Computed example of a mutant assay.
Amino acid sequence: MEYLIMVVANLLIGGMIGLTGIAGFLLPMLYSGFMGMPSAQGLALSFCAFLISGILGAYNYYRARSLDLRLALFISLGSFAGAIAGVNLNLLIEEGIVKKILYLVVLLSGISILIRKENKEEKEDGKKRQMPSAFWVGFGFVTGLICSLSGAGGPVLVMPLLVVFGVPVKTAVGIALFDSIFIAIPSCIGYASQSDPDVLMVLLPVTLISHAAGVWIGSRNTSFLRPDILKKGVAVFSVVIAVVKLITG
């Protein structure tokens, strides 16, 4: 039954990540909350899955010309360093405090997407606001730190914020998936080193294969969704999840 739950959950969550870039944060909640795994083991399994979803999803978005590779590289540079710091801080800061900060940011990002009015130029060209490269590196560091520390993966925080900064929604999803690779690498190594290797070797194949299948299916079918509908859906999903988590803790 445990394996069946993992397969179904990873297929569904992987599909949602492929379509919208978000939902990865549900995996550590599933492993550590519902299934009762040790925190480090749940995070190790989750970030290994995020590594796969990032690679497959970013590849499909790049093929669909929905990935701004230059911007993604600047953000990912900061995220890699931030993720290293986040894994080390995980042992020092109370997890509940970090979770509240994360979901508050997600809530505000989702609300901003819903209330933000686009002008005609943004609708037609989808041009992002001009920010210096250093800003995007710093952006990546902060989001990478929070996501690796809390187990959010990356896109749930990065994607809505990119949309707020004027990045087109599909491009934002592609960038967030690419960025999640660089958050996942140090996180996988850090949390796996704190876990039972024998257990990980058994559970990892189940997680990775089912998660990869879900992401591949989801990211290959983004053309069937209108960007405005996708944007609103991501915003509503972010707000609902953030409110639920802030209330329930």
Results as ranks from 00 to 15, higher is better:
residue 101 I to F: 14
residue 189 I to V: 12
residue 194 Q to K: 12
residue 135 F to C: 04
residue 176 A to S: 15
residue 87 V to A: 12
residue 169 V to N: 11
residue 139 F to V: 00
residue 192 A to R: 01
residue 164 V to K: 07
residue 68 D to F: 13
residue 91 L to G: 11
residue 69 L to E: 11
residue 113 I to W: 02
residue 182 F to I: 03
residue 107 L to N: 06
residue 169 V to S: 13
residue 193 S to P: 03
residue 93 I to Q: 13
residue 166 G to N: 13
residue 72 A to D: 12
residue 118 E to K: 14
residue 101 I to C: 15
residue 161 L to R: 02
residue 153 G to D: 07
residue 80 F to E: 03
residue 188 C to Y: 00
residue 88 N to W: 11
residue 188 C to K: 00
residue 133 S to Q: 13
residue 190 G to Q: 02
residue 177 L to R: 01
residue 125 D to P: 03
residue 178 F to P: 05
residue 64 A to P: 03
residue 125 D to T: 10
residue 165 F to Y: 15
residue 108 L to I: 15
residue 140 G to V: 01
residue 122 E to Y: 14
residue 91 L to W: 06
residue 194 Q to Y: 08
residue 163 V to Y: 07
residue 121 E to F: 08
residue 73 L to H: 09
residue 80 F to C: 06
residue 173 V to E: 09
residue 73 L to P: 03
residue 142 V to H: 05
residue 136 W to G: 01
residue 122 E to A: 09
residue 193 S to T: 06
residue 170 K to D: 12
residue 172 A to D: 09
residue 71 L to K: 05
residue 149 L to W: 04
residue 186 P to I: 02
residue 90 N to L: 07
residue 137 V to H: 14
residue 65 R to I: 00
residue 76 S to I: 04
residue 159 M to I: 06
residue 81 A to P: 06
residue 92 L to E: 12
residue 192 A to T: 01
